[in-house]
Design a binder for these strands. Structure first.
Length: 537
RNA sequence: GGGCCCGUAGUCUAGGGGGAAGACGCCGGGUUCGGGUCCCGGAGAUCGCGGGUUCGAAUCCCGCCGGGCCCA
């Protein structure tokens, strides 16, 4: 077997096949088969994600795999970004389709077509829908199992809000969900980056991406959160009737309302008016101004009458965000070693494997192993491998290969001492614990988790280096590091850097770090922000 | 987008115009069992697909499909 320490790329290609994650013998490029062991781990990952998403108000739904091209093309930037890579269905049976279908490359358009029908009032918001599904992209570059395929297994979530503020608040929650997945579940070394203008989601306003750093120093985008703003709401006409500007619950002295032509006016009314509105009854006549127009109001009913010439319909604000099997692939790539995979225990299909060491007195060892199995099987995903045709050594290699996080060895020694021997997959550390302190297993999982997080943390610290000059940048990139450099934020400079160093300007921090005192690492003109630059997958 | 390499049993590989070979794995028997036990026997391949050249093609040529790598 190829060693990760010698050739990580080849190791990855080999390990995902050998460790029963995928089988790419299926003869369609970029569409491997996910084997039970790999698919189970991925499902555990998705189900942890789904639970978290539901905790921030998202709900599951299912939308079709195909999108009529006529719907897909509604948002012009979106289509420009994806058109080159969609799969088409132009025929069905013997009929040529008048409106051809495409396999969804992402589900914004199909969902938003429906959202426009579902959303009528501010009471319908927020609407937050997630879907764990497959999307299809005709990738022309060489494909790589779990990392770049033409069929992508992922989870996408779409949220619709009444204001920009609500949408941004939701993005912060989405980021917390993703941090849980990347950090607490997968122990990935990663940073959040705000993509520059030229690299954001086609059709969106802002893109935040989680960029994991792989062992070879390349960036791997493992998740994205987009602020779509109103860019889809307008072509898809996702509008809602906002709450009544003078509705007592929301009565707002700084309110603006629109006329039927879309012109906006500020509302001026005396303070007393708002106070009475709050109480639900007007006791005298007020003069309120909407723009230049004056209205005389003496009852709440009258307000409704006067406001008929105004339009309270508004376009929604939207976000969308996704995590794909790439995050899973990235974690396998990052965590594995020369012996094989290391499965993060929260998603490991087998969390603990019990190996009975058979010999002179098999019956005792087998009985005892079964007893241990019974004691822990309800709490963990445990497999008791009692196959007596294979030697323990053989099994050790196998379970190391597929990355089972903990192994329990049981031989005569353990039977006599009423104990078990536990071996950690990640660092081979051994623990001997007595049968009446099995709760220590939790402790061992926790320790392992902390060690792996620590490893990721120090890796990020080691990899990201600050540079100010092009020579320093060049040196960092040549050493397969990630550079943080002052930058002018011009695409032309980013292109030059790409050409010269084969490295990409990935973007700024989410709250961009100001670099106005510095000079752009490429052109030398005044810089705007510090950006991350590195090689990518 | 451009270039290079590869496709032979479940897996990896040898063969490179005329008998399809080995290792691992698999099945049976015995032996072993705290880091890949050892021995004996057995099953398993229309040589990726299609076309061409030839008396004869796994082998040479062309196209396609699939896999890998490098460069823009």
């Amino acid at each position: 077997m190829v060693k990760k320490s010698e050739n990580p790329k080849e190791w990855y290609n080999e390990i995902v096949r050998k460790a029963n994650i995928i089988d790419d013998a299926y003869p369609v490029k970029g569409m491997p088969v996910y084997k039970p062991y790999g698919y189970k781990a991925f499902k555990f990952l998705m189900s942890l994600l789904e639970n978290k998403l539901e905790s921030i108000g998202a709900e599951p739904a299912w939308f079709p795999i195909v999108i009529p091209y006529s719907i897909f093309k509604k948002e012009s930037e979106h289509i420009k970004g994806f058109e080159e890579e969609v799969f088409w269905i132009e025929r069905a049976g013997n009929d040529k389709l008048e409106d051809p279908l495409i396999l969804r490359p992402t589900s914004e358009t199909e969902m938003y077509y429906m959202f426009a029908k579902w959303i009528e009032s501010y009471r319908d918001l927020p609407l937050i829908i997630y879907m764990t599904n497959t999307v299809y992209r005709y990738e022309t570059k060489s494909t790589k199992a779990l990392i770049r395929g033409r069929e992508v297994l992922w989870n996408e979530t779409h949220s619709v809000h009444r204001s920009e503020e609500d949408a941004r608040e939701h993005m912060a929650k989405a980021k917390e969900v993703y941090d849980y997945i990347f950090w607490d579940v997968l122990y990935l070394p990663y940073i959040w980056v705000r993509r520059p203008e030229w690299d954001k989601f086609p059709g969106g306003e802002e893109t935040y991406a989680a960029d994991a750093i792989m062992p070879d120093g390349r960036f791997l985008q493992v998740g994205t959160i987009h602020l779509l703003g109103q860019k889809f709401a307008i072509p898809f006409e996702i509008k809602f009737l906002d709450y009544h500007p003078f509705y007592k619950k929301y009565g707002d002295p700084n309110i603006y309302i629109k006329d039927k032509n879309g012109n906006e006016y500020k509302v001026h009314a005396p303070k007393e008016f708002w106070e009475e509105l709050e109480k639900g009854k007007l006791t005298k006549t007020y003069t309120i101004k909407i723009g230049d127009k004056e209205y005389t109001i003496s009852s709440i009913e009258e307000i409704n009458e006067k406001l008929k010439e105004y339009d309270f319909r508004k376009y929604v604000w939207q976000t969308s965000y996704g995590i794909s099997m790439r995050a899973f692939g990235g974690a396998l790539y990052w965590l594995g070693d020369d012996l094989g995979l290391v499965m993060p225990y929260k998603i490991a299909p087998i969390q603990i494997v019990i190996i009975p060491i058979l010999g002179k007195d098999d019956t005792k060892v087998i009985e005892y192993s079964k007893k241990v199995y019974e004691l822990i099987k309800d709490k963990y995903r445990v497999y008791l491998d009692s196959d007596d045709t294979k030697t323990p050594g053989y099994k050790y290699y196998y379970y190391d290969l597929i990355g089972v996080p903990l192994r329990i060895d049981i031989g005569l020694k353990e039977v006599e001492n009423n104990s078990i021997t536990i071996v950690r997959r990640d660092n081979k550390k051994k623990y001997t614990i007595s049968l009446n302190e099995l709760e220590k297993i939790d402790q061992i999982f926790k320790e392992m988790e902390e060690d792996l997080k620590q490893k990721a943390k120090s890796f990020v610290n080691d990899m990201v280096v600050r540079v100010k000059t092009f020579d320093e940048l060049k040196e960092a990139i040549e050493q397969n590091k990630i550079a943080k450099a002052p930058f002018c934020m011009r695409e032309s400079c980013a292109n030059q850097i790409k050409e010269l160093l084969h490295a990409e300007v990935r973007g700024t921090d989410i709250n961009p770090e100001n670099a106005e005192k510095e000079r752009c690492v490429y052109c030398g003109e005044p810089a705007k922000y510090w950006v991350y630059i590195g090689k990518t997958y």
